[in-house]
């Protein structure tokens, strides 16, 4: 199965990269852009064929390594 892990900084954690992108979009003339937040996407190719187990595995990996839950939240999608 393929698992896609999306890692984002938690709300309330300063995201200077998002801020910089927000400003650059403003410089390019885009109006009406609210807050910009930047994260990362990690794709995992898993041998597991059961969706529930694949999800559990990816969530475990996320808690242990892929995300730092002190500052980041994560979301797992399995396909």
């Amino acid at each position: 199965m393929k698992a896609t892990v999306t890692v984002m900084l938690k709300n309330g954690v300063l995201d200077p990269q998002g801020k910089a992108i927000e400003q650059a979009l403003g410089h390019l003339g885009y109006q009406g852009v609210g807050e910009v937040r930047m994260g990362k996407i990690i794709e995992l190719d898993l041998a597991e064929t059961d969706p529930a187990r694949a999800r559990a595995q990816a969530e475990d990996m996320s808690r242990k390594l892929l995300a730092n839950t002190v500052i980041e939240s994560f979301k797992v999608e399995v396909a």
Partner: peptide, 17 residues
Amino acid sequence: LTEAGLLPGALLRNASL
């Protein structure tokens, strides 16, 4: 040490980038 859980918190990108 923070990533290993030996000290609390985390070190983020410098606010100035």
